[in-house]
Design a protein around this nucleic acid. Structure first.
Lengths: 346, 346
DNA sequence: GTGAAAGCGCTAACAT
DNA sequence: ATGTTAGCGCTTTCAC
């Protein structure tokens, strides 16, 4: 049986094979591969030839095991279906890859996924650090990470317990509400998005409340798009338009949600922005399409990714940061006014 | 200096630490962790307690090195910004994760990225297999993979040299053209997408040609959206509408491209579908938004992901497949008629 | 400039 | 049921 197997997968050449073929020791091979110590040109050539001939490829598992540190980082993402997170993931991978790290992708698909187990898996893989775009709030999961001393930084996640690089969500929300208020809207609803990371959603909600207060506006309703499939709380609310209570503007937790809000509204005969205004958050690529023209808050996604990765790698390299305290960085979002917002009707 | 460092990162508990604390041998610990051999309940309890106390977590690097096979798969993606690939990636990760494999994400960002190097990195990490949503055609890269005996399967990639699970792109293209022809269109252009994987694009182009032939239609122009930023070949072409040569329908390489085509057309005053029809490919989530209502070909993305992963894992487990020949599976796409296609004008 | 040797943490075959 | 042992492939002192 063993013999049969061996037909299938030829044993990969090891450093020993190379050493034997080129008539030197393991250490010398290692030295020509990594250039850690000087090697005689002739020897080097000899070794290089052997490497070529055998198709030798160093085994990262063995290297990392020996070195006691791996060249892998874990990247945790909540929902890749949301183009914002997909884009962020893409940018993160670019940065980690060019820094020589492999990226282990870890998706938190819905609340069914045990955050702790997923994180544990990452830790078992001996990742050098973790970049997380999602934090469900499982304190135990976080404790495990800190206990092992693996650095973790939140990217588009805001939590006081670890380093974070995020857009200033509260500010963004205030910008959105102010824009709406300036257009004469007085009944502004908030539509949270369950797809967005919790802390992010919370910050946007908070900013919405703040701005409402500052503009001396009564707090509009908080209306979820759909807790259960088929359910619709938005349209009934909006259709009470004659009613003085009905919102004339909706601030959505993110662009996807905003787009869905528009969809619901318009299929119920409520035109955007004529009858109601809608503001999103993120500025995903498609939002700028003429047919959508979503007014939204653009996140500095490139900066978030770059800063997040560089901060993590600094930590990985032993930088304990300022006094070991978690550092939050909030980058400014930018209000992009397009065509889903207009003066309040009536 | 070393002492300072040691403050930062506490050495992680190993199987030996657990063995010592619980007063048994390594093997026994290993046995309680993996249940490979029976262990006396009392001993097991003892060991479990030690594991708990030390916060022991097995080191996957060491396990994989010893076992000579890793629990990681490489996932290669061309462009995560395209929601279709993001969705596919998400589904793939779900499947590999639930099969107990970690996912190493490897993005091929543009032609600057050396395919071969990226693949080499994956191979160095000792991935058990590779799922690729992108193949640039670098034969050397592919050779390296097959030389090491690491199974590879294409997901939404069509190449005769390895197992592939794809939508039947040519069929989809034919469906699109037939639909357009039935609506009376006779001048149907093809708009390739550079964001889409090459083989996929080629198959769709081929299907378009075939269908045109079958419908006895003259082959319309192939017009790229933009080779260089700021360039626009589409609008000048379309604006020659009085001209009998101007296309009245556009079949795009994917939804993103289709959406951009619509955008260009409409901002040039050409209404879709009144003046021109547009068909996409993929059926990304946003395409169904009322404002977009893109007529497109839905890919069986869930099936593609599931089949792709299961085929790879079978190969990983030693299944050499039918006679060792590469097996292509083409799943049917479904034409989804929405509101970007209508009868030919005039 | 090069080699010998000691492990990194783990599994699995074998012994007890 | 449990312990002993021999590595997996590599890096890294430390000799020479």
């Amino acid at each position: 049986v063993a013999a049969q197997r061996s037909t299938g997968r030829p044993r990969r050449a090891t450093i020993i094979d190379v050493a034997r073929l080129s008539g030197v020791s393991k250490s010398t091979v290692s030295n020509v591969v990594h250039g850690a110590a000087p090697v005689h040109p002739d020897t080097r050539a000899q070794v290089l030839r052997a490497i070529q001939e055998l198709g030798y490829r160093p085994n990262a598992l063995a290297r990392d095991l020996k070195r006691q540190r791996s060249a892998m980082v874990g990247v945790v993402v909540g929902d890749l279906s949301n183009p914002f997170y997909a884009e962020l993931t893409k940018l993160i991978e670019q940065h980690t890859a060019s820094a020589g790290y492999a990226t282990i992708l870890c998706a938190m698909n819905g609340p069914t996924d045990a955050e702790r187990d997923k994180i544990a898996l990452l830790l078992e893989q001996q990742v050098a650090g973790i970049l997380t775009m999602f934090f469900g709030g499982d304190a135990a999961a976080l404790d495990e990470v800190t206990a092992t001393g693996v650095p973790i930084v939140g990217v588009s996640v805001d939590d006081a317990r670890f380093d974070c690089v995020v857009a200033d969500d509260a500010l963004g929300a205030r910008l959105a509400v102010r824009h709406l208020a300036e257009l004469g809207h007085t009944r502004i609803a908030y539509v949270p998005s369950h797809a967005t990371e919790a802390s992010t959603n919370a910050a946007r909600l908070e900013g919405w409340k703040q701005a409402l207060r500052r503009s001396r506006l009564r707090r509009g309703p908080i209306v979820t798009l759909a807790d259960e499939p088929g359910e619709d709380r938005l349209v009934p609310l909006a259709q009470a338009m004659q009613d003085v209570q009905a919102p004339t503007a909706y601030f959505a937790g993110n662009d996807i949600t905003a787009l869905q809000v528009i969809d619901r509204l318009e299929s119920a005969g409520i035109a955007v922005p004529r009858d109601a205004s809608v503001v999103g958050f993120d500025d995903i690529g498609l939002s700028s399409l003429g047919r959508l023209s979503l007014t939204t808050l653009r996140q500095p996604v490139a900066d978030i990714a770059a800063l997040g990765v560089s901060r993590l790698l600094k930590r990985v390299d032993g930088d304990r940061g300022a006094g070991g305290r978690a550092k939050q960085t909030r980058l400014q979002p930018e209000l992009i006014v397009r065509a889903t917002t207009a003066s309040a009707p009536g």
